[in-house]
């Protein structure tokens, strides 16, 4: 094999030295691809060249041959750099694959089912900006007259955020939602996050509980983006916010609770800052613009509304999300 490579090289070189045509050079280029395929290092190429030249142009002064030895010395580290590069590329491919598997695991972990509640239409969209998401939407309900929803945003992105979130999920699974109520749920999750997450990691969360028996939506917030309440009778938006510290800051944070009554055609939109802080090359998308986008589809089913808002903001950002995007629409029918 090395002998064969040497013979092939010699032939191409001989022809080139005779004609110096572009075709010879093209053959040389094609041959260099073969050399790479055969895993022949730069220093070996010089060595092949030297021995080919000895046959093609014998009788060159000895200093010329020494110069090739010098060139071989020059090429050793290039050869090493190439090998290292190849091994790093391979490692990156492995990591990429691992990330994809992890993202699948996360997807399964974060799967949530929209609860069926009398007179309430629920829709949502959640899209990560990278492979793993730092946003989290959680539904809970008795499939009769009660539905709870949590929208959380872990500060930071990628793997650390995803790991932190799986803990929030297990916290949510273990809480007695209906008995605790929104501020109670946040207190429990806060204690879990505070205990098990390091100091540099914070989570914001908005939690809402809808009771179909009296059409009440009660909510609490842990430093989360305010939700929006659209009042159909007045055709305007009202911000829903409640005082409360981010999750994981202090063991005994308290969470204020608010409540509204939803009328026919009203809806509540809960989102993460990936929605409100959407960035275009010209700057942040204005709040008014976002409200206009939501308004323009207010008569459509909740799922379509959420999808439309996402599609619009995605388009405005050139289809490259800067941050994880999550939006839940709860619409009173």
């Amino acid at each position: 094999m090395p002998q064969q490579t040497e013979n092939e090289y010699k032939e191409i070189l001989r022809q080139y030295l005779e004609d110096q045509s572009e075709q010879n050079l093209y053959m040389g280029e094609a041959f260099s691809r073969k050399l790479i395929e055969r895993d022949i290092s730069p220093e070996e190429v010089i060595s092949i060249h030297k021995s080919a030249l000895k046959d093609v142009l014998p009788g060159l002064p000895s200093k010329v041959w020494h110069s090739f030895d010098f060139l071989i010395e020059m090429m050793i580290r290039y050869g090493l750099a190439l090998k290292e590069h190849q091994s790093l590329v391979k490692r990156q491919e492995e990591m990429q694959l691992e990330m994809e598997v992890a993202a699948k695991v996360q997807e399964t972990l974060l799967k949530t089912k929209i609860p069926a509640v009398e007179g309430m239409d629920v829709g949502y969209v959640t899209v990560p900006s990278r492979i793993m998401s730092g946003d989290y939407i959680y539904f809970v309900g008795n499939d009769k007259d009660e539905a709870g929803v949590a929208v959380a945003d872990v500060m930071g992105k990628g793997i650390p955020a995803a790991l932190c979130m799986s803990m929030v999920k297990f916290g949510m699974d273990s809480v007695r939602h209906s008995a605790e109520g929104p501020s109670g749920v946040l207190s429990v999750i806060n204690r879990i996050v505070e205990k098990s997450v390091n100091d540099s990691m914070f989570v914001t969360m908005m939690y809402g509980l809808y009771d179909a028996k009296n059409s009440t939506f009660s909510y609490a917030s842990a430093g989360h983006e305010p939700a929006l309440h659209y009042r159909a009778s007045e055709n305007r938006f009202v911000e829903l916010d409640a005082k409360g510290l981010l999750l994981g800051v202090s063991q005994d944070a308290r969470y204020e609770e608010g409540a509204i009554v939803l009328e026919r055609g009203d809806f509540v939109a809960i989102m993460t800052d990936g929605v409100t802080e959407a960035r275009t090359p010209e700057g942040f998308v204005e709040k008014e613009t976002i409200l206009e986008i939501i308004s323009s589809v207010k008569d459509r089913p909740a799922q379509e509304m959420a999808e439309h808002v996402f599609a619009e903001l995605d388009r405005m950002q050139g289809f490259r999300l800067q941050d994880d995007f999550s939006l839940v629409i709860l619409k009173k029918e």
């Binding site: 050793i76 580290r77 090493l80 750099a81 090998k83 290292e84 091994s87 790093l88 490692r91």
Partner: peptide
């Protein structure tokens, strides 16, 4: 590890020696 010593500007490093 590949990339450990080279990124610090130390040359081929131990992985380099191993490869040579």
């Amino acid at each position: 590890e590949d990339g450990y010593s080279t990124s610090g500007g130390l040359g081929a490093g131990m992985p380099g020696v191993k490869r040579l």
